[in-house]
Computed example of a mutant assay.
Amino acid sequence: MTKAIYREEYGVFLAVLKRRRQEAGLTQEECSRALGRPQSFMSDVERGVRRLDIIQIRDLCKAMGCDLTELIIQFESELRRS
């Protein structure tokens, strides 16, 4: 099976994550800081170079002012559209 980072679904997830960040009015630097990481971390995440674990995704949701469940629902909705 193909690694998750190379699957179409992962690209959809990254697009949802980036859109949520932008809608929250946050920079990559602000999101990275919320995770205790340098700015380049979020850049790497959004480019698909670095992966987030579920705890980091949850922390990121908190920083963006959304619920983890909301993010997953949006992700699943986007998958159905693609």
Rank of each mutant, 00 (worst) to 15 (best):
M1L: 14
M1N: 08
T2C: 10
K3Q: 14
K3Y: 06
K3P: 14
A4H: 06
A4Y: 07
A4W: 12
Y6E: 15
Y6W: 12
E8F: 15
E9Q: 02
Y10N: 00
Y10G: 01
G11W: 02
V12R: 02
V12H: 02
V12A: 12
V12T: 09
F13S: 02
L14F: 01
A15D: 10
A15S: 03
A15F: 02
A15L: 06
A15T: 09
V16H: 13
V16D: 08
V16K: 04
K18R: 01
K18L: 04
K18M: 07
R19W: 01
R19N: 04
R19P: 00
R20T: 15
R20D: 07
R21Q: 09
E23G: 00
E23T: 04
A24C: 05
A24S: 04
L26A: 02
Q28S: 03
Q28K: 00
E29I: 12
E29W: 13
E29V: 04
E29A: 14
E29D: 13
E30Y: 08
E30R: 12
E30F: 05
E30W: 06
C31Q: 11
C31T: 09
S32F: 04
S32H: 12
R33P: 04
R33Y: 12
R33E: 11
R33L: 13
A34H: 09
A34M: 09
A34S: 14
L35I: 14
L35K: 06
G36T: 11
G36F: 14
G36K: 13
R37K: 15
R37N: 12
P38D: 13
Q39K: 15
S40V: 08
F41D: 14
S43I: 05
S43N: 05
D44G: 09
V45I: 08
V45S: 08
V45A: 01
V45L: 06
R47K: 12
R47N: 07
R47W: 06
G48S: 06
V49T: 13
R50V: 05
R50N: 10
R50A: 12
R50Q: 12
R50L: 14
R50K: 08
R51Y: 03
R51I: 04
L52K: 13
L52H: 08
L52Y: 07
D53Y: 05
D53H: 11
I55S: 12
Q56A: 13
Q56G: 08
I57M: 15
I57P: 02
I57T: 10
I57D: 09
R58D: 10
D59G: 05
D59Q: 15
L60M: 11
L60V: 05
L60T: 14
C61A: 05
C61W: 09
K62G: 00
K62C: 03
A63G: 03
M64H: 07
M64K: 03
M64Q: 13
G65A: 00
G65C: 00
C66N: 04
C66K: 03
D67R: 13
D67V: 07
L68T: 15
E70G: 11
E70L: 07
E70T: 13
L71Q: 07
L71S: 05
I72W: 08
I72P: 01
I73W: 08
I73V: 14
I73G: 05
I73L: 15
Q74G: 10
Q74L: 05
F75D: 02
S77N: 13
S77Y: 12
E78M: 08
E78K: 05
L79V: 11
R80D: 14
R80S: 04
R80C: 06
R81W: 02
R81Y: 01
R81N: 02
S82W: 03
